[in-house]
Amino acid sequence: MQDTLIPVIADDREKKSDVVDELLRLPQVRLTIQRLPVGDYLVADRLLFERKTLVDLVASIKDGRLFTQARRLAAAKGIPALILQGTGSDLRSQGMSREAIQGALVSLAFRFGIPVLRARDGRECVSLMLYAAGQTADGKKVLLRRPAALGKSKQRRQLYILQGLPGVGDARSRHLLERFQTPANVFTASVDELKQVQGIGRIQAEKIYSLIHENPAEYRFSAGHR
Rank of each mutant, 00 (worst) to 15 (best):
D56W: 09
I61D: 00
I114G: 01
P183L: 04
E99V: 11
A109S: 15
L211P: 01
T53P: 00
G95I: 10
A59T: 10
M129P: 03
R30D: 12
R111T: 12
G88V: 07
T136M: 13
L23F: 05
M1I: 06
R172L: 11
R65D: 08
S210I: 00
Y41K: 04
V191E: 10
Y131D: 13
T182S: 10
G78Q: 09
L130A: 06
S173E: 06
S127P: 00
H213Y: 07
I79H: 09
R46K: 14
K15H: 12
R172A: 12
F187C: 02
I83G: 06
M96E: 07
L177N: 09
E193P: 01
K195E: 14
F221L: 14
K140L: 11
K62A: 13
P166D: 08
G139Y: 09
T182R: 15
T188E: 11
H225F: 14
A223D: 13
V38S: 05
R145W: 08
I208M: 09
V168Y: 01
R202C: 05
G151D: 15
A189C: 05
D11Q: 04
S153Y: 10
A74M: 11
Y41L: 00
V191C: 03
V116P: 07
Q69I: 06
R98F: 12
Q155I: 14
A59C: 03
R111L: 09
L36C: 05
L48P: 01
K15V: 10
S97N: 05
R172M: 07
P7Q: 07
V43A: 01
L130P: 07
T68L: 15
L159E: 12
R145V: 12
R13Q: 08
G95S: 10
A205E: 03
R13A: 11
E50V: 03
L23K: 01
T136V: 13
